[in-house]
């Protein structure tokens, strides 16, 4: 019962703050509302018994990535006064693109059957031991390949940010 109330509350917070991300004029406010959205999503993970995912979601997205976002926004001192005015053409194009994306989402979700997860009631489903066993057992090779992918992305980022190649 309490889970259901929490679900509706978190959903409301997530959607409301996600809308405010888009509608806020000030980029700092947009970024802060995005953090609220991340917290609401992390709360949803908790309701699904995925504690590890929830904690990592907060640490990585709210704690690291958004700090860097806000850092850049503060550094460039973006605010509503200096935001360049976009032409009407661009606005129309953006609206159409967003609408098409929404259409794809709706089309994708139309056929989905809303059935309860069979293992939903298993309290150990999202625990870190279980996750570790799955990642380093069943999905060992994809996991290692994605690690190599991250490493190459990191090397690439360092290489690009260096001004002189010599």
């Amino acid at each position: 019962m309490i889970t259901q109330y929490l679900f509706y509350f978190l959903t409301f917070v997530a959607i409301f703050s996600a809308l405010l991300v888009v509608f806020s004029k000030n980029p700092i406010y947009s970024a802060l509302y995005l953090i609220v959205t991340f917290f609401a999503t992390a709360g949803h993970y908790f309701l699904l018994n995925a504690q590890f995912l929830a904690a990592v979601h907060v640490i990585v997205y709210a704690g690291a990535i958004m700090v860097l976002f806000i850092y850049v926004i503060m550094m460039l001192n973006l605010n509503k006064e200096v935001e360049p005015h976009k032409s009407t053409m661009l606005k129309v194009a953006a609206t159409v693109c967003g609408g098409v994306l929404g259409l794809v989402l709706v089309a994708g979700l139309r056929e989905t059957e809303l059935t309860a997860l069979s293992e939903y009631s298993n309290p150990s489903i999202g625990l870190i031991e279980r996750l570790g066993n799955v990642l380093f057992g069943t999905y060992m090779v994809p996991f290692e390949i994605s690690a190599v992918l991250f490493l190459s992305a990191m090397v690439g980022a360092v290489f690009l940010s260096k001004k002189t190649i010599h």
Partner: peptide, 10 residues
């Protein structure tokens, strides 16, 4: 420990 890291990072 993850909870702690999360709170610290926020």
């Amino acid at each position: 420990i993850l909870y702690l890291l999360g709170v610290v990072s926020v």
